[in-house]
């Protein structure tokens, strides 16, 4: 099997169009915490990948989950991380892409699915479709607070990673989000409130 990625928490292997995602042990944390985290995240990820697809959000198809080895087997999505293509897009393409991403995030939230790590590293563009991956930090949670935090994570990651096109990206994202989700405005308001609770807000 070929190693296709070594992420912070998992190794990804590819064989015959099938991806094996293995959550690896971390020596820096005590075994109790390590085991609990890898186990919950593996289970959650498998479950949320399927739930998300049912909610209309493209994700890899889960084929198998092995909680002993902390492995998920899933279909391979041949695409590029959105993170790497942002700077190559025209204004119009960027708008279209992030409006689509916003509406996908809305579809997740409408189904009470919290992604937990909404960043452009966790979105793949494959043949014109955006796939969401890496649901390990996610959960099913209907609360405004959880959805608002989810959006805040996205907004902050755009701020640190795509600072040059931050404004365009966020405008497109939130317009896509609002149009797909009638209660979206409320979630956006909550996001702003959560941000103000933080330590590093320049204006309150």
């Amino acid at each position: 099997m070929e190693v296709i990625a070594k992420g912070a928490e998992a190794n990804l292997y590819l064989e015959d169009n099938i991806v094996l995602k293995e959550r690896i042990r971390k020596e820096y944390r005590i075994p109790e915490i390590d085991e609990a985290l890898r186990s919950t995240r593996t289970k959650r990820e498998a479950k949320l990948l399927s739930l998300a697809r049912r909610a209309g959000v493209p994700t890899p198809v889960v084929l198998d989950v092995d909680n002993r080895s902390k492995c998920i087997t899933m279909s391979y999505v041949d695409g590029e991380k959105v993170k790497y293509i942002v700077d190559t897009l025209s204004e119009e393409e960027l708008n279209r892409l992030f409006s689509e991403i916003g509406s996908l995030a809305a579809k997740l939230h409408r189904a009470n699915i919290i992604h937990g790590d909404l960043t452009t590293s966790n979105m793949l563009l494959s043949q014109g479709r955006v796939f969401f991956i890496d649901f390990g930090l996610g959960e099913v949670n209907p609360s405004l607070e959880a959805k608002g935090t989810d959006l805040l994570v996205f907004r902050k990651s755009v701020r640190s990673t795509h600072y040059r096109r931050e404004k365009e990206i966020l405008e497109a994202f939130f317009s896509g989000y609002r149009s797909e989700y009638p209660e979206g405005e409320e979630v956006i308001e909550r996001m702003k409130r959560i941000e103000k609770r933080g330590r590093y807000v320049s204006a309150r």
Partner: peptide, 24 residues
């Protein structure tokens, strides 16, 4: 006691990649 941040230099700024959402 008052801060918790993970930062790195990218293009003229120390960008914040991770930080506490509430207390330090």
């Amino acid at each position: 006691g008052g801060n918790t941040q993970v930062t790195a230099y990218v293009e003229g700024r120390y960008r914040v990649f991770g930080e506490t959402l509430d207390i330090a």
